[in-house]
Design a protein around this nucleic acid. Structure first.
Length: 470
RNA sequence: GGGCCCUUCGUCUAUCGGUUAGGACACCAGAUUUUCAAUCUGGGAAGACGGGUUCGACUCCCGUAGGGCCUACCA
């Protein structure tokens, strides 16, 4: 049955050879969205056939990354290396049917052939394609796929359309290394087939492989999956995304204080869109998503837009959750957290989250509530505290002492009443009061700041500022 | 070098032959104002280039330029 008629099964197939790239995260997201949209299944396969570079720790990075993004697969991961026997069996079958051959080329011979092939503008060919095995059959050798020498291979891609490849351009790729280990292109085909993958949704960098893989599917007599190659994500300058651009691993985005739901929204919008919709829920994305609507051109990461989207989700996020995330960010920075920090954060977070683009900014904006008495007052704020102002703040302190109802609404009224009694505008002491309360650190509006700090802390800070310098 | 992919405001995108080419982020100006921010109003900003096809092209075709991917016994 053709893949397009079977229940949808997608997969994300990262290799555990480093951190989890943000591009991998988006590929996972699109696979997940498509599976959810189609009522299908989303799977994970760890491509750990590169024994040199694959590590246990990197596998964990992938698992953690997907979990953080909320894109957990519907079944336990398949480890590609564990399926090596199966891969070898398939190669054996290919060897029997003439779909593959043993190649005894040495590295030197290979290098020479590569040079010639390049000069002639064609793919490399092995002389062992149509030659009998050498005398000593035990000599190390690889097994190569025996591809057609002419004709064309067509890849019907859901985002790129039909792409044609001249078969003479497609080399006889290695299926089994000289140590008997299966290679990527063989393993992918076998695994995708065995896992029942109907839609191979992956990065653009695999488009060429799709042609080679198509040939393998055909040689094996297997039906092809649908292919969808996603354009890559570039850095803000259009070049390949690298560390230089600020971040490329999902873990880094998490540490910088971006929310997973914001990343899903932003990443979905990068290379895919639904009319003018910018901010949307997972449910909406699932309802709207179709790989066929994916944009063909590569997209650049835009820090401003990520920040904007993230701010939207920070505003919508639960305060307790944001407080926990902020505390975690502090711990990561190695900051010691005071006993009462959580309560103070908790009261400050809802007041400052409107302006916070990340959790880290949430921390910066909450800082005024976390510092301890006597708080440091910067020069600019200190300059506001003239004799006249100090006297007025003294009277204000007295006024606030008698303030019973310590709520934003009541305090707003109290501040206005005081201004009236002084016969001045709020501007005459608002700035200075803020100076005593936050010492120059950003803080929300006065009534809110007073509420967040609480009665004792607020009055204490004012008193500290008015008392003679030590 | 060869094969393949891509090309609308600075960025992400809408448009699926006929629009004053729309939206979002960013930017600029103004309003508000107790710092920063937020908020509100307004503004500038695009079809890479050259040929076709067509009554009519951002949209279809060809070429050029530019960018990207692949060209491993990596994935």
């Amino acid at each position: 049955m053709p893949a397009s008629e079977r229940p949808v099964v997608t997969r994300i197939a990262p290799s555990p050879t480093g951190s989890m790239h943000i591009g991998t995260a988006r590929t996972a997201l699109f696979n997940w969205l498509y599976a959810r949209h189609s009522g299908g299944t989303f799977l994970l396969r760890i491509e750990d056939t590169d024994r040199e570079r694959s590590t246990e720790a990197n596998v964990q990075v992938i698992l953690d990354g997907l979990a953080w993004l909320g894109l957990e697969p519907d079944a336990p991961p398949v480890f590609q290396f564990a399926r090596a026997e199966r891969h070898r069996a398939v190669v054996a079958r290919l060897l029997e049917t003439g779909g593959a051959y043993r190649c005894w080329m040495t590295v030197e011979e290979l290098a020479a052939e590569r040079e010639i092939a390049r000069a002639e503008g064609r793919a490399i060919r092995s002389p062992w394609r149509d030659r009998d095995p050498p005398a000593g059959v035990n000599l190390p050798h690889v097994v190569r796929f025996k591809g057609p020498l002419d004709g064309e291979t067509l890849v019907h891609d859901l985002v790129k359309g039909t792409v044609r490849f001249g078969n003479r351009e497609l080399d006889d790729l290695v299926l089994l290394r000289s140590d008997g280990a299966p290679t990527y292109n063989l393993a992918v085909v076998v695994d995708d087939h065995d896992m029942g993958i109907t839609h191979v949704i992956r990065g653009d960098d695999h488009l060429n492989n799709a042609a080679r893989q198509t040939l393998i599917y055909q040689a094996l007599g297997w039906s092809l999956p649908e292919f969808a190659h996603l354009p890559l994500i570039h850095g803000p300058d259009g070049a390949k995304l690298s560390k230089r651009h600020g971040a490329q691993a999902v873990g880094e985005f998490a540490d910088m204080g971006y929310l997973p739901e914001a990343m899903r929204n932003y990443l979905a919008r990068l290379g895919w869109g639904h009319g003018d919709d910018e901010l949307f829920s997972d449910a909406q994305a699932i309802a709207w998503f179709d790989v066929r609507d994916v944009v063909k051109a590569p997209a650049r990461l835009d820090w401003n837009k990520i920040a904007h989207v993230n701010n939207h989700y920070v505003r919508a996020a639960d305060d307790a959750r944001l407080t926990s995330l902020t505390l975690e960010a502090m711990a990561r920075r190695g900051e010691t957290i005071a006993e009462d920090a959580r309560d103070r954060l908790m009261s400050a977070v809802p007041l400052v989250k409107e302006g916070a683009k990340t959790v880290l900014e949430l921390l910066d904006l909450s800082r005024f509530a976390l510092v301890h008495r006597p708080i440091a007052i910067d020069a600019k704020s200190e300059a506001l505290l003239t004799e006249e102002v100090r006297a007025r703040l003294g009277r204000l302190a007295k006024h606030l002492w008698s303030q019973e109802d310590w709520t934003p609404a009541a305090l707003t009224v109290a501040l206005r009443a005081f201004a009236e009694s002084e016969g001045v505008g709020l501007g005459k002491f608002g700035g200075p009061l803020r100076a005593t309360l936050s010492g120059g650190l950003p803080a929300p509006d006065l009534a809110s700041a007073l509420t967040a700090l609480g009665r004792d802390e607020s009055l204490g800070r004012i008193a500290d500022a008015l008392s003679p310098r030590k």
